[in-house]
Amino acid sequence: MKTEILKIAAAHLKPFLLILSLVVLYRGHNEPGGGFIAGLLAGMAYVIYAGAFGVGKAKQLRLVKPMFFMGLGIGIALFSGMIGLMNGADSIFTGIWTTLTLGGFSLKLGTPLLFDLGVYLTVAGMLVKVIFTVMEEDV
C-alpha cells in the first residue's frame, strides 16, 4: 500500500525519530529510556520509510547498513567494557564517568552511555535487517 500521505509523513518522521532516539538514548541511564528502546526507535524510522517507499528504495539510504552497525555496536559495547581496565580498575565493565562542559551545557558522559550506544546500534541494525528481510519476502 503506497499512499502519498504515508510517504510525506515517513519522510518527515525519519529525522524526527532519529533525533528522538538519541534523546531517549542519552536520558536512559537515570530515567526511562536506554539503548534498547532508542535502538528500536531508530530502526522504526527506517522501517516506516521502507513501508512507504518500498524496501528497494529504503536500502539505498546512506545509513542502511545493518550488518555494519550490528558489528560496530557489539564492538563499541565490548570496548566500553575495556576502558575501565585501561584506567586501572580490577574488573571489566567498571564504570568511568566524566563531565563534558560546552558553553552553558554540561554533558555527563561515561562508559555506561558508551555501552548503551553499542546496544543502540546493534538493536537498530538487527531490527532493520530482520524487518527488511521479511518485507522483501512478501513481494
Partner: peptide
Amino acid sequence: LIPLISIVLLIA
C-alpha cells in the same frame, strides 16, 4: 570476550 570479539571480526 573471545567469542564476542570474534563475532565483531567475523562481521567485518
